[in-house]
Design a protein around this nucleic acid. Structure first.
Length: 692
DNA sequence: CAGCCTCGAGTTCT
DNA sequence: CTCGAGGCTG
């Protein structure tokens, strides 16, 4: 047995190679014991130790990393959670269609891609179950692994739980390939969901919002016995990775899935021509309410697998399948009131408070009303019954007012002309949409929002000091201005004595605050929350002025000269008169200067690096969209900027590169239309020289 | 001056 | 993600 104790830096190359070989075999053996036989021989902690040892040696001897390195396979089980599983073939999302025109365009695109003229395409239509996708791997016909979709690239290992579903065969009937992955949708019937909630309520347990959440919650139980007790089913709909290249048609594959023992949705049907889709869609919609389970549309797949292979993928979605969704679910509810929120810049935003109502499976209580004009345009009045809809499946919108249900005497909503928090006048400059509180430095709502912004991710980013804590500390006058944050370490005992705090957490907070005493100039400028100075403009200023002292001097000069861009500000590309005016206004206020000087005394503000330089992406414009699996947005951005690229948020003709994560939406589509190069996250890492 | 391109700001729910 | 508005370009 290989030695497990000698420090990595004392290993010879030969010893390291030998130990890596041993570890690869040992970890693979335990993986089999755990996943295939459900009979682990060692504890999770011991298993983790093996993996950590492997990672440490690989880090010390990168040249010796084996092709069968355990690091490339199933990830370690995080304490109290599920192991991560990397999908052999990513589990992608589908593009959506909402009407016959969308579907027609989809068919035309596929035809164009294939170089076909008038020939009609043959489809399979399958109801789109509202559940959760799972991946099942069969080795020599035996179920060896079950995984959730996760982010599409990496999911969670739920093998033990999946084994408890009666509709999932543990052995495939008849002849099966050596290795095959089957994909399906796990769901709970509407009746079972209601019964489960009754039981949950009786047991004093949390209720589930909808069948999908109930199914997801049930499958992700750490104790498989609980999963076993929940009524879950699965319809199989496709295969993923397989040791045999698939041939024939999708329809034949569905038949094969049935032969192997899977349930396939009985409503699925072969459509000889795309012209049959609209009729099929209507037929399924008619039966929707009577079905025992929830569906949110129909998936149409081109039947011929050879055509599917030719069509391939764009970004995150296949070119050979599309989800034709039913119209967005609407609900009516009563507008109980309109609250006015005051933002960091003083903007007054009206928020609708609604009688809670279920829209598309989510309980909605609030909806934004955007602004004064929006309320007037729809003539929304308190007490009105309103039609609500979730736009793009996410943010609730008020679509319209049900005029017939208006209570007698309801008055048009009068938008306040004073700040509801500080009482200052709220004005709306001509031509603008937003009304703003003029309280500025005295409005406690604005002060609080500015403090929240000050510690936010892109600004000071102080660990353990999120917006909840800031609001609490501000309410209790522990923090009145930004400089007070850096004096918190002096009051550690006082914080430790607070409810919900202890010595350890107070000490950690002090350390986190001290760790941020040194800050780059750009972040500092951004943190101040000057209107129109966001992350990008702060960076421009920092790069132009270099140091805090220089910036301060020049800004004061700008105030003297008058903002009219006769100052140096006019020389910065991207900074125009409106922004210059905003800066001059900020520096014209003595209290603002006092605040930044006070901060400068407490902090070490690092000079900005001069702009420019080479880098492999010098001058390129890069856009990230969708959810990235292995990088956070700021990491991705920093990576791109290091290579000389400029990162923006929207796709246009000037964009050079679009990097798509999962669920990339309109931006990926726009990039495709404009012919902008689209790459995946993995390809991006490759390009940036930081592959997995 | 019009039309694009970018940036900033605001928001829902689990 | 979406909207509004500033800034730049033709």
């Amino acid at each position: 047995m290989a030695p497990k104790t000698s420090p990595v830096d004392q290993l010879s190359e030969a010893e390291a190679a030998a130990e890596l070989a041993w570890l690869a075999a040992e970890i693979a053996r335990h993986d089999r014991a755990y996943h295939e036989r459900d009979a682990p021989e060692i504890s999770d902690a011991e298993y983790d130790a093996l993996r950590r040892r492997n990672a440490a040696i690989e880090a010390g001897f990168p040249a010796l990393v084996r092709p069968d390195s355990p690091a490339h396979r199933v990830g370690p089980a995080p304490a109290g959670g599920f192991a991560k599983v990397r999908h052999g073939v990513p589990m992608l999302s589908l593009d959506n269609a909402f009407d016959p025109a969308d579907f027609g365009e989809f068919c035309d695109r596929a035809r164009r891609f294939l170089g076909l003229k008038q020939e009609k395409l043959e489809f399979v239509g399958e109801p789109k179950i509202d559940g959760l996708s799972v991946s099942l791997t069969y080795q020599d016909g035996r179920l060896v692994r079950g995984a959730t979709r996760g982010d599409g690239l990496e999911g969670e290992d739920v093998t033990a739980n999946v084994r408890t579903l009666p509709t999932i065969p543990k052995h495939l009937k008849g002849h099966a390939p050596a290795r095959i992955e089957i994909r399906g949708e796990v769901f709970m019937t509407k009746a079972d969901f209601l019964a489960l909630n009754v039981a949950q309520e009786a047991a004093g347990q949390k209720l589930f919002a909808n069948p999908r959440n109930a199914a997801a919650g049930s499958l992700r139980q750490l104790d498989p016995r609980i999963t076993a007790a929940r009524p879950l089913s699965m319809f199989a709909y496709a295969m993923g990775e397989a040791s045999e290249l698939p041939a024939g048609t999708h329809w034949q594959w569905l038949a094969r899935l049935r032969e192997w023992g899977f349930a396939v949705n009985p409503l699925s049907d072969l459509l000889a021509s795309e012209d049959a889709a609209a009729g099929f869609q209507a037929g399924v919609a008619d039966r929707r309410a009577a079905l025992p389970y929830d569906i949110d549309g129909v998936v149409y797949k081109i039947n011929d697998l050879a055509l599917q292979r030719r069509l391939g993928f764009v970004g995150r979605a296949p070119r050979w399948a599309i989800a034709w969704k039913f119209p967005a679910e609407q609900a009516t509810t009563v507008l109980e009131g309109i609250d006015i929120q005051v933002g960091r810049t003083g903007a007054l935003t009206p928020v609708a408070r609604l009688t809670p109502v279920n829209v598309g499976g989510v309980l909605v209580r609030n909806a934004t009303l955007h602004n004064e004009d929006e309320i007037a345009r729809k003539d929304v009045r308190i007490g009105d019954t309103v039609v609500l809809q979730r736009a793009g499946d996410v943010i609730p919108q008020i679509v319209a007012v049900v005029a017939a249900d208006r209570p007698p005497g309801a008055q048009p909503y009068a938008f306040p002309d004073h700040c509801p928090v500080c009482g200052s006048l709220a004005i709306r400059p001509p031509g603008e949409v937003v009304r703003r509180c003029t309280g500025g430095l005295v409005c406690s709502a604005q002060i609080e929002e500015r403090l929240v912004h000050f510690v936010s991710r892109a600004a000071f980013d102080i660990e353990g000091l999120g917006d909840k804590t800031i609001r609490e500390f501000h309410a209790d006058r522990l923090i009145e201005g930004p400089a007070d944050i850096f004096r918190l370490p002096d009051r550690e005992a006082e914080i430790a004595a607070r409810e919900g705090w202890g010595e350890v957490s107070a000490r950690n907070l002090s350390a986190a605050i001290r760790a941020r005493r040194r800050i780059p100039l750009a972040r500092f400028i951004h943190a101040l929350g000057i209107r129109r100075i966001g992350e990008t403009n702060a960076k421009l200023l920092a790069r132009h002025y270099g140091s805090f002292a220089n910036w301060r001097t020049q800004m004061l000069a700008a105030v003297q000269i008058g903002a009219e861009a006769r100052s140096d500000l006019g020389n910065i590309v991207g900074i125009g008169p409106a922004i210059a005016e905003e800066l001059a206004e900020f520096f014209a206020e003595q209290r603002n200067i006092a605040t930044i000087d006070e901060l400068a005394g407490l902090l070490e503000i690092a000079d900005a690096e001069a702009a420019g330089g080479g880098g492999s992406l010098a001058g390129k414009v890069v856009v990230f969209t969708g959810t990235l699996a292995t990088l956070t947005r700021p990491e991705a951005k920093a990576m791109a900027e290091k290579l000389g690229a400029k990162v923006t948020d929207s796709v246009s003709k000037k964009t050079d590169l679009v990097v798509t994560g999962t669920d990339a939406g309109s931006k990926a589509r726009k990039a495709a239309e404009l012919g902008v190069r689209i790459i995946t996250e993995a390809e991006w890492r490759e390009l940036a020289g930081q592959p997995f």
